[in-house]
Write a protein that binds this DNA or RNA. Structure first.
Length: 228
DNA sequence: CCAGACGTTGTT
DNA sequence: GTCTGG
DNA sequence: CCAGACGTTGTT
DNA sequence: GTCTGG
């Protein structure tokens, strides 16, 4: 599963990143408060989607609320979506065809179970670069008529590397895979499914961190500090 | 047909 | 809205 | 994901 | 146990 992650990059550098890879000229909202060391469900997160031929970056609340929901609380239960069943679940099938997005990150946390209980692990790419999770988004109309925009992170079976830590992992996309995933003109299930695969084990790395990260109120750099 | 759920993970 | 179960 | 609350009425 | 909030 994937229920916590980081985006350890300055506002300036992320601005450059968005321009370089996605031709996005927008400013980053200062309220994102970058860098971030403990991003949790329920928060507004930085995402990218494709609007026609242009990429757009925007904040989406993490926790998918289907447009037909009676109550937005359901979002707290929909922070992840199983890649294997996206096309058949009433909650996700529409978004799978029409509302795909990616979520920018540079690492994520998983709690590894051992004899002592749970140890939070920080997992990132060996090259330490930013990457993106595959996601789905939704627009939900609230009672007061305003819209709530939400998203979910897609999970898959673990690769060889992740197996020792957890039984699921988020779908991480290469830049090539992102092109397919974000292309609004593609809606062929089989084609889309080809990118929803576990990431290359050889490019991933992990280390244990302090349980400071357990509490989502703790947002300091201590969250990513290695422990013995 | 209508009613009621619609989700994931991990734990029991 | 759409699917499953009765 | 984990942490922390989880209830009502009436009175201060 | 189960829901809400971060």
């Amino acid at each position: 599963m994937c229920g916590r992650y980081t985006l350890d990059i300055s506002e300036d550098k992320l601005t450059t990143y968005l321009k370089t890879y996605y031709e996005i000229e927008q400013e980053i909202d200062h309220r994102f408060n970058l860098p971030r060391y403990n991003i949790a469900p329920g928060q507004r997160i930085i995402t990218i989607l494709k609007d026609g031929d242009k990429f757009r970056s925007g904040p989406l609340k993490w926790g998918f609320v289907p447009f037909w929901a009676k109550d937005e609380k359901i979002g707290y239960k929909m922070i992840n979506a199983k890649s294997e069943t996206l096309a058949s679940k009433p909650s996700f099938k529409h978004a799978f065809k029409n509302k795909r997005c990616i979520i920018l990150a540079d690492s994520f946390y998983e709690w590894k179970k051992d004899k002592n209980g749970k140890t939070p692990m920080r997992i990132s790419l060996k090259n330490r670069k930013l990457f993106s999770f595959a996601g789905l988004w939704s627009s939900y109309q609230k009672e007061d008529g305003t819209n709530l925009y939400t998203c979910t992170i897609i999970t898959t079976e673990p690769n060889e590397f992740m197996e020792s830590i957890h039984n699921r992992m988020p779908v991480i996309l290469t830049k090539e895979q992102e092109k397919i995933w974000l292309d609004p003109y593609i809606n062929d299930e089989e084609k889309l499914n080809t990118v929803l695969r576990p990431y290359n084990s050889n490019e991933m790395t992990a280390y244990p961190v302090s349980t400071i990260v357990n509490n989502a109120r703790n947002e300091t750099v201590e969250c990513i500090k290695p422990i013995n």
